[in-house]
Design a protein around this nucleic acid. Structure first.
Lengths: 263, 263
DNA sequence: CTTTGTAGGATTGTCAACAATCTTGTATCC
DNA sequence: GGATACAAGATTGTTGACAATCCTACAAAG
């Protein structure tokens, strides 16, 4: 509800994410889905998702087929498919006979996304901890967590820290032995990027975060699936609370623009 | 892998499900998504999913756009969209430039689906237990679980039992306060129906199942989220093991039809 | 001054045809 | 005899145009 009229919680998020586009490019998420498969709809979907995550398409904004078709020099067919893909990933909302608009989630909905993510990441990390072949993943995972430790100490390295967390998450999802879960996580990855960084703003939070990651690696190494799941869930839940707090503080200034009866 | 050549584990499943079509019609899953929205692709997708779940479309079978377009007296456009929806729900697999085939999951993949479902149902039931307004759901839930108890005693009422379980699951998902989770669960519902009934074949299993449901209702009533989650996960995990066992036994007779060099 | 009805433009939903690619069957060569 | 190359048919990917619906602005009535 209130998709069109809401106060655009994500606008304030996007203003804080000037480096998101770079991050997306470096993440490999784009290349993994677009370059390998030369599918036209997928390429378009990827490019559009970059714009939404980076904030050049504002929440609530309409996304019209004809305009995109003209811009990408392509028919409306592939555009339609791309928009359905984005809808599946929760980046746009398609209203029947009225087209697509960039999703503008309420704080409650952001919380919902984190809750689901906590479960999915919990399962992912548990399965990984119980995987006999987990050593190969740990080999690339551990140096990355070490990098994290370095960035956490330095208060200035906020961007690097976020990128490192993103990379770790990508490695873990990539290694997930459950293909169905992997699909869902991939679908979540895009929208996750929209606000996952929000909770890591303070050095305090980052120190806690790095501890969680270290504990997680430890749990995976000793094959303790239950612990891995618990830690992963705690981590995402903490991240959720940080993000919610940041969103609530950010949303407060724009107080109650409800029915501006007269200017 | 081995999508086209596999021994069609689900064929044996489908043979056991002569009443699935009726179940689907009674479930409201069809009506909920098809009748309300007069969207042509959605209607088609629903009808196709019924055929796949009921088994009139065999696993591995190709599903071609032109044929469906002719049958439904519609262009290929809506058919394409319907097939993408089915792909999203895991009922068909779309190979680029080669079209769609009915998904033919391996036993390992069925296990994967159950694992994800265990997590999602766990979250769903925990959220419901922590929902202050859960009383209204419990009011309709409890008589349904009571029905379950009756069917569990009678060894003949296998079909009724399965239908009742399905109804309960639908009620719980419907009441889920997390809209994002609800979407994913809806997407899982169709493919779940394909083999969820497999684990409930023996009266022994059914008695255990009914106990789980009673405990779950109890946990929800007293607002014990952690317990509700634990019970839900156990329930799905048990169901998983039952289904896997049934699949393995069913698959054994058709032993190794590998390279039939000569007839 | 507000509300309701209506006409125009804009946008999505659907269709049928064209282009690109894949599969299958056949003939040829080693 | 078996493998490979080629050609014909079949099928998906894409396109541009038409139909149905929705939004906006304006006018008229209360």
């Amino acid at each position: 509800m209130t998709i069109l009229q809401s106060a655009s919680i994500l606008r304030v998020v996007n203003e804080a994410l000037d480096s998101t586009e770079r991050l997306l490019a470096a993440s490999g998420l784009a290349r993994a889905s677009a370059a390998l498969t030369s599918s036209l709809p997928e390429q378009i979907s990827t490019r559009l998702s970059e714009r939404i995550v980076a904030g050049s398409y504002k929440p609530g904004q309409r996304v019209m087929e004809q305009a995109l078709a003209a811009e990408f020099a392509v028919s409306r067919g592939p555009i339609r498919e791309a928009l359905r893909m984005l809808e599946r990933d929760g980046l746009v909302t398609i209203l029947p006979r009225r087209g697509a608009i960039v999703t503008d989630p309420s704080i409650a909905e952001v919380k919902e996304i984190f809750d689901v993510r906590a479960m999915l990441n919990g399962l992912r990390d548990r399965l990984l901890a119980e995987d006999p072949q987990r050593a190969t993943v740990l080999a690339v995972l551990e140096p990355e967590v070490a990098r994290l430790t370095r960035f956490a100490r330095d208060a200035k390295k906020g961007r690097e820290y976020v990128e490192a967390v993103w990379t770790i998450n990508r490695l873990l999802t990539e290694a997930c032995p459950n293909t169905r879960l992997k699909k869902i996580l991939d679908s979540f990855a895009r929208q996750t990027l929209r606000y996952s960084q929000l909770g890591l703003s303070t050095p305090q939070r980052r120190r806690e975060s790095v501890q969680h990651w270290q504990q997680l690696v430890e749990a995976i190494r000793r094959g303790d699936g239950a612990a891995a799941e618990r830690i992963a869930r705690e981590r995402v839940t903490d991240s959720r609370d940080g993000a919610i707090k940041a969103l609530q503080q950010a949303a407060r200034p724009e107080a109650v623009p409800k029915m501006p009866k007269s200017a």
